[in-house]
Design a protein around this nucleic acid. Structure first.
Length: 455
RNA sequence: GUAGAUGUAGCUCAGCUGGUUAGAGCAUCGGUUUGUGGUACCGAGGGUCGUGGGUUCGAGCCCCAUCAUUUACCCCA
């Protein structure tokens, strides 16, 4: 048998014990904030029907869905023209009917429609599960990563939007981040801009181009706009909007002037104002949220507010995003149900916290006490002690063989176990144990009945 | 999909304009210490130099191909 090289697919990772401690710290922190705001947890399957996912994420997104090959003789039913024509797209639908989930929002929409009779609206759910994207991996980008989503469906109140900003703020601050920006925009404003130019059909091109402002600058954006079908005249109208500056209120006032003739834009502006007004009433939260008209976000289904969170302390893509989608459940047959939600990118947050050294030091969860195993007699003598400590709620283990003491001590040291109990013939005769503090090196003899009190 | 970078020990890497037997640190194991880790000292094991071809008296180093990893673009968390 040939040796196969141990490897994992690119863009995936193993998580070792010390990493899991840190990851769980992030999940637990976010989860507790979600719960505090009244969200309940659900989970959905790793696989969805391919038809559930396709068409929801745009053309680019569809390409990045991991498809699962049908079981059995998957070529048996393929019509030969698809094979002979080398028609990959046509072939895919015939040999794959399942796919790995691409995000948590679309499966959630599917969930809501399937369980609509059991749900009382507004329904606030959170979900922390991995998602998969067939992207080229790079810094901060993985093919398997966790999202932490909170969504509410069945409520059009903009209070939800305001609360999501509070959730972002509280969760990220709890994780120790201090300098981050929560950006907000509204898809309706973007639609209004496209409308005023008279090219509503180019809204996607418009948003994709102006989204790159901070990356390629104004000249780059103008160049891209022209490539995407806009004229010099259009750009003259766009410029003041793209280069909007000042406080949120100043920006809003300016937008009202420029976009005043567009009903939809005014609606979007008014929504933002309402959200800011809610935020103002949550005191202490002045200016945590910044209106950014260049914020576009790729996903097709957003219709109202759009959020994005970036840290300013580390070069990293966005660590969270979200928005309102008015009709996500419509394609599954449930009309007129609006939703809004946000997502935390746990893996990117992990990378950020690691780089900033923000993980708490004492998150090492390990054994408290190791009982050494000197010989078979001591091993049996140790068993009731082992049980006694565990019953007292102390994480305790007995070294499973009578290896050299040096080896056993190294084991305790490597595993950062703070206490070691030594039991030899002398201790057994006197019904005591020797307790060693691994940090100070100090050793004391303790009567067995007093042992549990020591920890 | 487009472009660049890098593949040498379990890990991180060094290896000169091509020249004897390819090195270091860390990790592992053993010893100094048969009842003591973390520190110190001594020692050991571990390498088809990614793979295949070519140039050369001679290739880890040069050339070509191929695979893998990685960074950036597109797009995204």
């Amino acid at each position: 048998m040939s040796n196969i090289k141990p490897a994992i697919p690119k863009g995936t990772r193993d998580f070792s014990p010390s990493e899991m401690v840190k990851r769980n710290y992030i999940f637990d922190t976010i989860k507790s904030v979600f719960k505090k705001f009244g969200y309940q947890e659900i989970q959905t399957p790793t696989m969805e029907n391919l038809s559930t996912l396709t068409g929801k994420y745009g053309d680019e997104g569809d390409k990045l869905i991991f498809k699962i090959l049908n079981s059995g003789d998957y070529l048996g039913k393929v019509t030969s023209d698809k094979l002979l024509d080398l028609d990959s797209n046509g072939l895919t639908s015939q040999i794959s009917e399942k796919a790995l989930r691409y995000d948590l929002t679309v499966p959630f929409a599917r969930y809501v429609v399937m369980h609509q009779n059991d749900i009382s609206f507004p329904f606030k759910r959170f979900q922390i599960q991995p998602v998969w994207r067939a992207d080229r991996p790079q810094k901060g980008r993985y093919r398997e990563f966790y999202q932490c989503d909170a969504d509410v469906v069945g409520s059009e109140s903009l209070l939800n939007e305001a609360e999501f900003i509070l959730i972002y703020d509280e969760a990220l601050k709890s994780l120790g981040l201090t300098d981050f920006t929560i950006k907000i925009n509204n898809r309706k404003i973007l639609s209004g801009i496209a409308e005023i130019i008279g090219k509503p059909e180019l809204i996607v091109d418009l948003t994709v181009a102006i989204d790159k402002l901070d990356k390629i600058g104004l000249d780059g954006v103008c160049k891209e706009l022209i490539e995407r079908g806009f004229s010099e005249v259009d750009i003259d109208i766009l410029k003041p909007v793209i280069l909007l500056e000042g406080s949120n209120t100043e920006k809003l006032d300016k937008l009202k002037q420029v976009l005043g003739s567009s009903e939809i834009a005014l609606k979007g502006i008014s929504e933002i104002e309402t959200i800011f007004n809610y935020l103002a009433h949550f005191k202490k939260l002045n200016g945590i949220c910044e209106l950014d008209i260049t914020l576009a976000r790729g996903l097709n289904y957003y219709t109202g507010a759009i959020f994005e969170v970036k840290t300013n302390e580390v070069a990293m893509g966005s660590i969270g995003g979200g928005g309102r989608y008015d009709d996500l459940t419509g394609v599954f047959g449930l009309k007129n149900l609006t939703g809004v939600g946000i997502s935390f990118g746990a893996d990117r947050i992990y990378d950020v916290l690691l780089e900033l050294n923000l993980f708490p030091q004492n998150t090492e969860e390990t054994t408290r006490v190791l009982i050494s195993n000197f010989d078979s007699q001591a091993e049996l003598f140790a068993l009731p002690i082992l049980q006694q400590l565990r019953e007292a709620g102390i994480a305790t283990e007995l070294y499973p063989s009578n290896a050299k003491l040096k080896k056993q001590m190294s084991y305790a040291n490597d595993k950062k176990i703070p206490f070691v109990i030594l039991i030899g013939s002398d201790e057994m005769a006197k019904n005591v144990v020797t307790l060693k503090n691994m940090e100070s090196g100090e050793q004391t003899r303790i009567p067995i009945q007093d042992l549990a009190k020591q920890f």
